[in-house]
Amino acid sequence: MRIPFQGDFLSRLAVVLLAILLLLGFVGPSLPVGDPAAIAFGPRLSPPAPGWLMGTDNLGRTMLPRVLQGIRITFVLATAPVLITSVLAVVIGMLAGYLGGWFDELVARLADVLFAFPSLLLGLILVAIMGPGVRGITAAIILITLPLMVRVVRATTLSIASRDYVAASRVSGASLPRLLLVHLLPNIAGAVVVQATFTISVSMLIESGLSFLGIGVQPPVASLGSLVQNGSVYLVQAPWLALAPGFFLAVAIFSVNLLGDGLRDRLDPLEAHGLK
């Protein structure tokens, strides 16, 4: 198989790690690794053993399928809101950057206000309003990650909009949709992909943070964050309960960030040309 990022060791490492994690998360649970929901599958708080490779928890559930499922939940809960954030940010940021005027001012001020809140506090407030669970987490992640994303899109738009081909198209009488879709969007897409990648790691942190506080995903669903929270109670008697999901969470965030770095070197028009 050809791995992208020829010659860039760290980026290739990121691709390989992510591929392994995704395989584990999406294919792993359907392998014969045991039923993640079965109580008293084994003894309680048992260390890793042949029947339960990652040990068992306080209810005697085998941890391996629970961690594999957690990986999947973590990726889904981190990625889905970022997709929504990206779409919203592209629409808002492009219009603000290109049109300027009062709309731009309004967007900038709102972004400032959201930015001023510590992200976890903002998450807590939202979950308090929407209730704990997937919907609350999703809303929290979108609102926390939106301001930065809008700023990136807006700044990139400003830079691209000042280019000669945009001016030429505008002078020719091009419509707003043509300018946005033909000239701006394809040329800011790289920056958006890069920023979205970094944002996925941020949203993993937010989701785990909220889940760790117990207001994220609710049982029986478990993400890596909520597994760490469960395990933290038994950190002394059964450290594997927190360490195994913690390890996978760290690897996930690490490799997503590395991937972002690699993509930035390749795709980001500002990093690659404008700021040189």
Partner: peptide, 29 residues
């Protein structure tokens, strides 16, 4: 009305083939 600008590196949309760029004013009309 038309304009030709200063920066050769930004003169053309990098995502479009040269022919598409040149024909754009016709497409707009």
């Amino acid at each position: 009305l038309q304009i030709v600008g200063q920066h050769p590196e930004w003169a053309l949309n990098p995502r479009l083939r040269v022919g598409t760029s040149v024909a754009e004013p016709m497409a707009i009309m």
